[in-house]
């Protein structure tokens, strides 16, 4: 069977703030025999809740421009960001089903000699890992199981909602992300507010960071009420930023200290597959850089004696 290839849509937060996720994705997909191809000249997706709120046609046109890069190469796109996924997937879907929007977008794209053709699909890492690689193959690759490590999840919103449109998981009782994370061998810890938004989306973090952080704080408090966890895993770098660097901001705004290690799902899998944290720079998360701290290695069950 030919090796499956995806165009790797990086977006903004992964390559510019959490590059450890970019590197971890490359390690994990390579281990699973899936190629990630550079998507030369891709721009901001652009952020769905931000640009989609400003001007739908401009949002769809910029997203469509990104889609045309993959169409030209003939491979599907994968992205590790819920926001990028929402913009690219939603725009792709809307442009395939709304002729009026498609005509407007193609009129705009003609200015730069591009045309949306609707020939490719957009995949979140989670879906590519779950459907293309498959849980069985992922479990086979796990050489460093997170046995005894308590793992809370933050699935975030846009990879599964709106459920009627995305049609892949029950957004009130999702299981796909949990099953994927559980391949690491970590013990899933449920908490009441697992499914509420991190607070960053929809241009709220930009408008009023304190309100955005209240969402995050509610999640942390809910997790602590459920007995706490050794790490929180998310499939989105914007959620990761909000949960990770957000802890430093919460301390500033609310004078309350939380110390959760936040991992993107590909970082979790990279570690589970036996990669050392230094291979993808887990310790470069903004929380650690700003606090001059490091991950709670012992809680994560990782020996880093050679550091």
């Amino acid at each position: 069977m030919a090796k499956k290839s995806f165009y790797h849509f990086l977006g903004c937060i992964i390559p510019h703030r959490y590059p450890s996720v970019e590197k971890a994705a490359k390690l994990v997909f390579n281990d699973l025999g899936i190629s990630l191809l550079d998507m030369d000249g891709a721009t901001c997706c652009p952020a769905p809740g931000v640009f989609g709120s400003f001007d739908r046609v401009t949002w769809a046109t910029i997203a469509a421009r990104n889609l045309t890069i993959a169409e030209a190469g003939g491979h599907p796109i994968t992205t590790g960001c819920n926001g990028c996924f929402a913009s690219l997937w939603d725009a792709n879907h809307e442009l395939k089903h709304d002729d009026e929007l498609r005509d407007k977008v193609n009129e705009n794209l003609a200015e730069i000699d591009r045309e949306f053709k609707g020939t490719i699909e957009v995949w979140h890492y989670v879906d590519a890992l779950y459907q293309i690689a498959g849980l069985e193959k992922i479990r086979e690759k796990v050489t460093r199981p997170f046995t005894g490590v308590r793992m809370a999840l933050h699935p975030g919103c846009h990879w599964m909602r709106p459920k009627i449109l995305k049609q892949k998981d029950d957004s009130e009782r999702p299981h796909i992300f949990r099953e994927l994370c559980e391949t690491s061998g970590a013990e899933y810890v449920p908490y009441k507010d697992e499914l509420i938004c991190c607070g960053a989306g929809g241009a709220v973090r930009t408008a009023d960071v304190k309100i955005a952080l209240e969402f995050t704080k509610q999640k942390f408090d809910s997790l602590i009420a459920a007995g706490g966890a050794d790490m929180i895993v998310t499939p989105c770098p914007f959620c990761e930023l909000q949960l990770d660097a957000g802890q430093v901001e919460i301390q500033k705004y609310f004078e309350q200290e939380y110390k959760f290690d936040i991992l993107h799902v590909v970082e979790l899998l990279a570690l589970a597959f036996g990669h050392e944290p230094d291979e993808f720079g887990l310790a470069t998360h903004l929380q650690y850089m700003q606090r001059k701290s490091e991950p709670a290695w012992e809680n994560l069950g990782i020996k880093v004696g050679e550091h």
């Binding site: 990086l10 721009t43 993808f280 720079g281 470069t284």
Partner: peptide
């Protein structure tokens, strides 16, 4: 660089023509 990827990613940060198109 610290995490082991190119200093500038292959997105609009590297390609000025992408910005021109936007």
């Amino acid at each position: 660089e610290k995490v082991g990827v190119e200093r500038v990613p292959p997105n609009a940060s590297r390609y000025a023509e992408a910005i021109e198109e936007i």
